[in-house]
Amino acid sequence: MRERSPRAEAQRRRMFFAGKVVLITGASSGIGAETAIHFAQLGALLSITGRNKHNLDKVAEQCGQPKPFIITGDLANENDVKNIIDSTIKHYGKLDILVNNAAVVKFGSIETPSLEQYDNIFNVNVRSVFQLTTLAVPYLIKTKGNIVNVSSVAGLRPLKNNLPYCMSKAALDQFTRCVALELASRQVRVNSVNPGAVPTNILRNTGLTQEQIKIVFEQLKGGHALGRNGDTLEIAKTIAFLASDDASFITGITMPVDGGWHVMSA
């Protein structure tokens, strides 16, 4: 097998996604923002969506040229979800990769039930993914594209006081497997990444103060076999790998990117 020079390999990776249209939800911060920037560096044409236009603009600036196509919307709103797909197709004419990244988290247990909280989490973390994927599938079949869902170690392992969120991520993992099976004959791959604790803004709407959030992430370090939290770029690189041709024979997996959390004893 012919070996590539380091320079040639770097050039190849820079063009991994040249001409590919990638739609990323929840791209205004955290893992979604880092994923958008990383895909841009690999030559992708981006459609990024989120609720905060100002933050999306900042992410778009970091992506450079060509500038990502920005769509603001709330994934809990059916019309907004439909507009995300329709606008992307109208702008680019196709879709190659869908990254279902957007999610919300709220703390709660079976002893502190809130159906409003449960519905909000499932509407964003599961229902919107179902709807967006359904709308995207015809276009992904045309391009023989693929889907990467951003799940969580919470879909693989139970976490205390996080019941609805854990349930939503377990549902997303099963969704990944089922859709992978259904679309395999059409050469559309479907996978998910399951990050461990990654310091982002996801906890900002939980009612915790910034100092409390800092303490939570400090405590979460001990849940990982590697003894540290993850980094958004580590997750972004895994998403890009699963979406790339290097993973062309991989479908239906839920890949822990969790510093070994899933092998720690409960």
Rank of each mutant, 00 (worst) to 15 (best):
A40L: 10
W261D: 05
G32H: 02
R228F: 09
D57H: 04
F241T: 10
Y139W: 10
A18F: 13
T200N: 07
K94A: 07
L42D: 01
T176F: 03
R177V: 04
P256M: 12
T133G: 07
L45A: 05
E234A: 08
A180D: 07
K58V: 05
A240Y: 11
H54L: 12
K144F: 03
S185N: 08
D258W: 13
N161M: 08
M15E: 15
G230Q: 12
L226G: 01
A236K: 05
L45T: 04
V59P: 02
R13L: 15
F130D: 02
N205R: 13
K20I: 06
P199W: 09
N100K: 06
S87H: 03
K142C: 01
A36D: 09
N52G: 04
Q117L: 14
L140S: 07
I110R: 00
T232A: 14
I215M: 11
I239Q: 09
G50H: 04
G93F: 07
K144Q: 15
C63M: 09
Q174Y: 04
Q62L: 13
F241R: 10
L181W: 01
Q219N: 15
F241S: 08
Q212L: 09
M1D: 08
V126F: 14
A8D: 14
V129N: 04
D96A: 08
V190M: 06
P158D: 06
A240F: 11
H91Y: 14
E34S: 13
G223H: 10
P138R: 03
N162D: 06
L220N: 09
Q131G: 00
L233N: 09
I48Q: 06
V129R: 01
S265Q: 08
F217K: 03
V105Q: 14
G73C: 11
N201C: 00
I48R: 03
E3K: 14
K160W: 07
Q65D: 15
K237F: 06
S248N: 15
R14A: 15
A8H: 01
G32F: 03
N191L: 09
N191P: 00
G19Q: 11
A266F: 10
G145F: 12
N120E: 15
L181S: 05
G252Q: 03
